[in-house]
Design a protein around this nucleic acid. Structure first.
Lengths: 315, 315
DNA sequence: ATCACACTTAAGTCTTTACTTAGGTCCGCC
DNA sequence: GGCGGACCTAAGTAAAGACTTAAGTGTGAT
């Protein structure tokens, strides 16, 4: 499986004909056909079959297309990225659970970039708890903000506490649900599907079955639903301060809550981490960072907005 | 640039030594060193340089690492995807602007999967307006939900109106801002950074400068900030119905609003589109879909929650 | 200084890729 | 039936990839 073969496949799939693809690549028709044949043989799937005038994709071909297209696009992106790296600002990758990314990653990244006077760019990525440690240890991320990842000694990571907060359960002030908390409707955001997150630990401790969960694309939406009485929602207390102050939501007394949570900053040990990672680590200890961690969701200017890491499907 | 070279590079970067990488791949040390040399030559960047005991990355190397790691991971994923495609449910890719994905993609995908009794899985992806047309025409997405994409005849797409709504501007009931609307603080979500979105068209018409914009990671967070008086926020009226009903927000009278907006469903023409795409297109015309389009953000059960398309950084 | 260690280069081999031209096969269509 | 278009296979070639072993070359430590 080579990139040339994949791009031949992608082109045939997109243009609907071997001939057209050969034309687009300005090579002969058999060249494309053979690249396709090699791929078919390697993957053990016809991928594309003749159907009258054009070609149709097999199920395997259709899965492959989206992945292959990404790989081809990334190949081009890789060249461009390396070529343009000279003199470009250094990049720093921060990973965190979706909750943290939603509320604090943007402002934090923005503030840090400003502080480095633009010489370091921070991009934020969402990751599951158990992936974060691997990402950092493999240098695919520079710093993880979230739970303590230092427990697994084999990865050789340094995890230091940076922020203390409390996990509570919120609901609309005037609603009552019947039965035990396990029977109530629970409104959660996507981090609850990560079995190692604090929220899913709480849900397990309470014995809430999956059938009572509604997953929302982001935390604010889940709270919004809770505010209209659709159920109860777990929350890092200080992040919901606006909703609490406006009395849209109120803290519900549930056994096991408030639950103390400590956010840790995890990096490689001092001798292996990059200078930029160290300086972000240091920044997290400053009063400015504390203030950002404490004050949720303030938005950032458009020029400094960076969407969380995700790869475009097509270049 | 081959996948073998890239994986050698990734492994060296991750393990911090050529020797360790060679060991992990169970090949000789020069084999890895040469793969690296070929890549260095091809890209014209040292990528990794010796630094005492280990290796450190150049800026180019660090850019490459995250891309190369994805490519390698995708390579493995491609094989797995094709091999497991036999008998697996058909997949259907829906793309839409972030606003639509946030509110309706989850419930819509969930309802459609249920309706097909699990034989079709829908995944939702976020895309910029002008990318959506290309994605569909290149078969990288099956259906786009959003603005009318039929204007560009050359792509041969079919865009049909499915839903009418109104774009308004919201603010907290009791706040007043000074000066003209162009001077107010505007709280927007990421789609506003897409110059072809309805929101950025509105902002341009009003002459709002970039400096007055705050970008939030999602629409609900922007509204939430507006509700506490931080500024005004554009909104598709019916999606903010809960906030309006609770009087956290109220419609502000601004020239040019309400702006009529029509969501279109865009697919390939009938003879070129897949059966699944046609059936999703048909589903969008049913009362059930209408109800979901009209009722924002209801959450989905965990088993059916699918995060929007993004590629994991590491496999 | 020089030794040990780790990366790099050199030289040689074998395999695979990527491509060409030439001929074969399949399918719809008149 | 046979024609045309489109895809596939065959045979052959040049180039590149992916290895190996053997011999440098640089750097930190004793």
């Amino acid at each position: 499986m080579t990139l040339t073969q994949l791009s031949a496949f992608v082109l045939v799939a997109r243009l609907g004909s071997v001939k057209a693809a050969a034309n687009a690549l300005s090579v002969s028709e058999p060249a494309v056909s053979q690249a396709l044949a090699a791929l078919r043989k390697y993957l053990g799937d016809p991928l594309l079959t003749r159907a009258g005038n054009g070609m149709t994709m097999t199920p395997g071909g259709s899965r492959l297309l989206s992945i292959a297209a990404q790989m081809v696009a990334l190949g081009a992106e890789a060249e461009a990225a390396v070529r343009s790296a000279k003199g470009a600002p250094e990049q720093l990758r921060l990973v965190a659970p979706s909750t943290i990314v939603e509320f604090v990653a943007g402002p934090l990244a923005d503030a840090f970039t400003a502080r480095s006077s633009g010489s370091i760019e921070v991009s934020a990525g969402v990751a599951a708890t158990d992936e974060m440690a691997v990402l950092v240890s493999q240098r695919l991320a520079d710093l993880a903000l979230g739970p303590n990842l230092g427990a697994d000694r084999s990865l050789g990571l340094v995890s230091e506490p940076v922020f203390r907060c409390r996990l509570v359960v919120l609901g609309a002030p005037d609603t009552r649900f019947r039965g035990s908390p396990a029977q109530w409707p629970w409104l959660v955001e996507s981090a609850a599907t990560d079995p190692n997150s604090d929220v899913s630990r709480l849900l397990r401790a309470l014995g809430v079955p999956e059938s009572r969960l509604s997953v929302f694309p982001n935390q604010t939406a889940a709270w919004d639903a809770a505010a209209r009485g659709a159920g109860v929602a777990p929350a890092i207390a200080h992040l919901a301060v606006h909703q609490l102050r406006r009395r849209e939501l109120t803290v519900i007394d549930i056994p096991g809550t408030p639950m103390d949570v400590v956010w840790h900053a995890t990096t490689l040990p001092l001798d292996r981490r990059s200078v930029a990672a160290g300086s972000l680590r240091h920044f997290l200890g400053t009063p400015e960072a504390m203030r950002l961690l404490r004050a949720p969701g303030s938005g950032v200017p458009p020029s400094r907005f960076r969407p969380p890491v995700y790869v475009t499907i097509w270049s």
